[in-house]
Simulated scan of single mutants.
Amino acid sequence: MALTPQSSQAFMSEVDDELRRDRLTRFWTRWGLIVGALVVIVLAAFGGYLYWQHHRTQAAAADGEQLQSAYDALAENDTKTADAKLKTLAASNVDAYRALAQFTQADILLQKDDLKGAAARFATIANDASLAKPFRDLALVRQTMAEYDTLKPEAVIARLGGMAVPGNAYFGSAGEMVAIAYLRQNKRAQAGRLFGQIASEKDVPDTLRQRAVQMAGVLGVDAVGQSEDTKTQ
Rank of each mutant, 00 (worst) to 15 (best):
L19M: 14
A174M: 02
T4Y: 04
L194G: 06
A169D: 13
A223M: 03
D17E: 13
K85P: 01
H55G: 04
G192P: 00
D63I: 08
P5V: 05
T4L: 09
V141A: 12
G161C: 12
L43I: 06
Y182I: 12
Y97S: 10
T150Y: 07
Q53T: 14
E228G: 05
L89G: 01
A174I: 03
A169V: 14
I157Q: 01
L33S: 10
S92R: 00
V141S: 08
S8P: 13
D83Y: 02
Q105S: 10
R188Y: 09
H55P: 00
D114G: 05
M177Q: 06
L140D: 04
G192A: 01
A99F: 08
Q143G: 11
Q197Y: 08
I34A: 15
D16A: 14
V218P: 05
Q210H: 09
G175P: 06
Q53I: 13
F135A: 08
A106F: 11
S13L: 03
A70M: 08
V39M: 13
F46P: 07
A84D: 11
L140E: 08
G36N: 05
A179R: 01
Y71N: 02
K80N: 09
K80F: 06
D203C: 01
Q197E: 15
A82Y: 00
N77Q: 04
P166F: 13
L140V: 06
V224W: 02
L151K: 09
E147Q: 15
A181V: 11
R121G: 10
F171L: 09
G48P: 03
K112S: 09
T232H: 08
A59I: 04
T232F: 05
A123M: 09
T124M: 12
H55Q: 15
L3T: 10
A132Y: 04
A181F: 00
F135S: 07
L24H: 10
A179L: 03
L138Q: 14
R56S: 14
R211Q: 12
F103K: 06
V218M: 13
D95N: 14
D63H: 05
E176A: 13
D113I: 00
A91R: 08
Q102M: 15
Y51W: 12
N77V: 03
D63S: 12
T104Y: 00
A90E: 11
A70R: 01
T79Y: 02
V221D: 01
D63Y: 04
A146S: 05
A106E: 10
V156G: 03
V40H: 02
A155F: 01
A82E: 00
L67Q: 05
E65Y: 01
A129T: 13
E18Q: 10
Q190W: 02
R56F: 07
K116F: 06
A70N: 07
S173P: 01
A212Q: 02
N186A: 13
M163R: 07
A189Y: 02
A10D: 13
A120C: 07
R184I: 00
Y170Q: 15
M215T: 14
L24I: 05
Q214I: 07
Q58T: 10
L115H: 04
T124E: 09
S13M: 10
V94D: 07
T29G: 11
D113L: 03
W52E: 14
Y71S: 00
W28I: 13
L140S: 12
A60T: 12
N77S: 12
A126S: 14
L109V: 11
A155I: 03
T232N: 13
A75C: 05
L43E: 05
N127I: 15
L19N: 11
Q197R: 03
D149V: 09
